[in-house]
Design a protein around this nucleic acid. Structure first.
Length: 433
DNA sequence: TCTGGGGTCCTAGGACCC
DNA sequence: TCTGGGGTCCTAGGACCC
């Protein structure tokens, strides 16, 4: 008789208040201070420590609405510092790899782990992982374990919210009755794949908690909501339908866009911004070894400016696939001239690269791979090397300008301790001497 | 004054074909 | 004037995620 192979077991590890925890890692003096991290332009609150929630500050709330209240209560704000967070993210994932060879880096602060076949007490194993990450990286994490990714993620939310689990919640060790009793106390909105639109529609059908969704008829859910939510229902029932994806699929599109620190009305201002975005997007393309067949460029005014919405954009096909900053910038600026209208207070602009192909797959134009291309490749390699070493915009296209007025606000950025040597702290700063 | 920046997947509907 | 059925491909828009 064949022995039954063990059922799939998924783990999900997720850093608590990731951005705040990274800021705290380098500022031990702030370990007890309530923190918030702000979005680009210091616009919205995008991360906060737990104690902030008691002050009535919500995620995604505009900072200007709450700044005064927060400051009065001793809250410290940081502008987002993605270089720092990416660095800690890598350390986090590397630590997890010590415990299982198969992990999926799902986002900057989350990983799925394949725990299938791990012998012994999974709860204890989870605790060990959690403590090791804490010791090696200083980051606090929680771990959820379940028979599907959806269940593992849900278990993690439970572990985060309910102190009795001490940061690790294993659904697979619970009896069905125990699990169902617990799921009945979990909001349906906590389930991965249920956003606020679905939450509202589910509420009308009386589906308010995770247990009700688990018990919904897959067929009916498919008819009313589509195949995605049907899959969620089946995953809640322990079917593992979403596989661990260890390798990162190449991007299908690459975008760079940003709101301005202040409104821009002139073509020359937009030219600088679009040049910058074309440069960033092209560099990301080269990082992934991809080539673009089309460029999309857009500019828009603000939905908050009480003016009619104005958001022109246009896509052009490139004569042959390219990842050259120069060619992509030219295409983007060509579009910009076509779509620009005067007397508009532009708030945001961006460049999107589309129809991406890997190097092997790219079709050459009728002239094939020309001398021009190899010169361009060499130039781009040199540019990436210099910018990789000395910072993103050390070497750039002249149309980007020198120090434009519209650059985003990052008034509270922490120094780039892990990246740029010129921002390393001196011994005195580090220890408050 | 001040309101983020990326992505993915699915579906419906139109254009076009025979 | 009327006018079928089945297929593909593309795009826009809507939902979700972090």
């Amino acid at each position: 008789m064949l022995s039954q192979t063990s059922e799939t077991i998924h783990g999900h590890a997720d850093v608590n208040d990731m951005y705040c925890s990274c800021e705290r890692a380098l500022r031990p003096d702030l370990h007890k201070t309530p923190l918030v991290v702000l979005s680009n332009n210091d616009g919205c609150v995008i991360a906060q420590t737990k104690d902030i929630k008691d002050l009535g500050i919500e995620m995604a709330q505009p900072w200007f609405e709450v700044e005064e209240r927060a400051r009065a209560r001793g809250v410290v704000a940081f502008s987002s510092n993605y270089e720092l967070y990416a660095n800690f993210s890598n350390r986090f994932a590397d630590t997890l790899r010590e415990f299982t060879p198969r992990i999926e880096v799902y986002s900057i602060d989350e990983c799925f782990l394949d725990l299938t076949g791990i012998k012994g007490d999974l709860n204890a194993y989870g605790q060990l992982i959690k403590q090791t990450v804490r010791e090696w990286t200083t980051l606090p994490i929680c771990i959820g374990i379940g028979h599907s990714k959806t269940l593992a993620k849900l278990a993690n939310k439970v572990a985060k919210k309910r102190p009795q689990f001490q940061g690790v919640c294993d659904f697979t060790s619970m009896s069905r009755a125990e699990l169902d009793t617990l799921l009945e106390t979990v909001d349906v909105r906590s389930v991965w794949g249920v956003g606020h639109q679905y939450e509202a529609r589910l509420a009308k059908l009386g589906v308010l908690n995770a247990l009700r969704l688990k018990r919904a008829s897959p067929k009916r859910v498919r008819d009313e909501f589509g195949v995605v939510l049907e899959r969620t229902v089946r995953e809640l029932n322990g079917e593992s339908l979403l596989e661990l994806t260890e390798t990162v699929e190449p991007s299908k599109q690459v975008m760079s866009s940003r709101s301005f620190g202040e409104r821009v009305t002139t073509l020359s201002g937009l030219t600088e911004a679009i040049s910058m975005h074309a440069g960033i997007a092209s560099a990301r393309l080269r990082e992934q070894g991809l080539y673009a067949n089309a460029v999309h460029c857009f500019i828009q005014n603000s939905p908050f400016d009480k003016k009619p919405p104005y958001a022109p954009g246009l896509t052009v096909a490139l004569p042959s696939p390219t990842n050259s900053t120069l060619k992509i910038t030219n295409a983007a600026l060509y579009i910009l001239k076509k779509i620009y209208g005067p007397r508009v207070y532009y708030q945001k602009a961006g460049v999107m690269l589309l129809d991406l192909v890997p190097e092997q797959g790219r079709q050459l134009d009728m002239y094939g791979y020309s001398d021009d291309d190899s010169k361009s490749d060499a130039l781009m390699k040199a540019l990436d090397r210099i910018n990789g070493r000395y910072g993103r915009s050390t070497l750039r296209v002249a149309s980007e300008g020198i120090k434009p007025a519209w650059t985003m606000r990052r008034a509270f950025k922490s120094p780039n301790y892990t990246g740029n040597p010129s921002e390393f702290p001196t011994i005195g700063e580090r220890f408050n001497l």
